[in-house]
Design a protein around this nucleic acid. Sequence first.
RNA 1: GGAGAGGUGGCUGAGUGGCCGAAAGCGGCGGUCUUGAAAACCGUUGAGGGUUUAUCCCCUCCCAGGGUUCGAAUCCCUGCCUCUCCGCCA
Length: 426
Amino acid sequence: MLDPHLFRTELEFVQAQLKRRALDFDANFYTDLENRRKAVQVKTQELQNERNLRSKSIGQAKAKGEDVQPLLDQVQGLGEQLKVAESELAEIQGKMQALMEGLPNLLDPSVPDGKDEDDNVEISRWGEVPEFAFEVKDHVDLGALHQGMDFEVAAKITSARFVALKGNIARLQRALVQFMLDTHIDQHGYAETYVPYIVNADSLYGTGQLPKFAEDLFKVSVDPDLYLIPTAEVPVTNVVRNEIIDNADMPIKMVSHTPCFRSEAGAYGKDVRGLIRQHQFEKVELVQIVRAGESEQAHEELTGHAENILQKLNLPYRKVLLCSGDTGFSSTKTYDLEVWLPGQDKYREISSCSHFKDFQARRLKARWRNPETGKPELVHTLNGSGLAAGRTLVAVMENYQLENGDINIPDVLQPYMGGMTVLKVS
RNA sequence: GGAGAGGUGGCUGAGUGGCCGAAAGCGGCGGUCUUGAAAACCGUUGAGGGUUUAUCCCCUCCCAGGGUUCGAAUCCCUGCCUCUCCGCCA
């Protein structure tokens, strides 16, 4: 949610900024609503004040043993007036709320204008794209060769866009997760966090998935409304919902490994082969809750933490700054990390690191107490994949493959694989 | 699943219709004292919003949502959550 104060003081600026999102914000509609809100709110509060004063005098008169009937006669009808005013106010506020919560975050000035992913800006590249002296296999063929990746059996168990992993391939994914967690905990200073995988609507509202993106979610219960998490961002960031955090506890850095569930509505026909786009996948997520002045630097650092995983795995990747048209609803600025996939002969997203400023915090009512002012202030939130484990598994398999289909195990993963150095095709 | 007890400020906890945004204690902040610190003492200390240049003033909030009433933390209804005991279970 955007700062309502900004709308009142710098409406043209907001309008111009939303235009970068290809959003035509109707300022007249807003101004109209806002003027009505102001008038009705003032009127309502005046009536409330009058009611309070009169009620108080009735109380005092009664205490003195006076006859209160004349006073009671005076308040005749006031309750009805107030009821009308209050419901009118509630209606206007509801409309205002609906308008505001549908608006995306304003983009950071450094975000380039553009229409879609083709206009994203490459910031850097790391690593050598491997040259193979043989025809490379993609992870689907490699997985089949190792009898470790079975899409048919998954489809039988549930439906399309799921996978069953077996044997060393399953273990390799687990090794990746353990390695990522240990690195973020021991080297990057994150606190391991275990959270529920089913969340309520308030939590999804807080991070911005609801009310706009309900169709992307798996709903598992109607009463109460509960959903499978699309990312650990939701439960982990909601740790601080409705909290006022002590200065001493800031900044908060949490890392969590969870499965993620996405309905992928509207993605039919995209990435139908393999592990790239599934309804369920494993991800290690980094979340930071920081002071306003620290968030930009935190964003760079957090992205660096995700990059460090790729570097330790020696996987070639590039860092991309998303353009205005590709930046997510809640984000003010997002870096994507794209790993090289030999099976596709291109870079594919493996991590998305976003900075939300106070956009989520305002929805979450997540604040910290600034010791300088003694007052609560909205925190800034950030998150990023560190990394998507399923896609990392794909990247390792494809980049580390040998001609006969064997897969070398990256050095850093070998301790997690019982000392194995290579996965042999049996 | 059955029975009972509860949800009040940063925390503990009093408050059963008006004098309550709310006692007391703890914690925090400021001060006195002290070379400094501790202790002691004094003062101060919830959040959100409206109006305003600002002060002032006003409104809302005692788990959430409804209701009763001139007036609700307090009474009624619904929901959610927590705790205790029993049963069951990993």
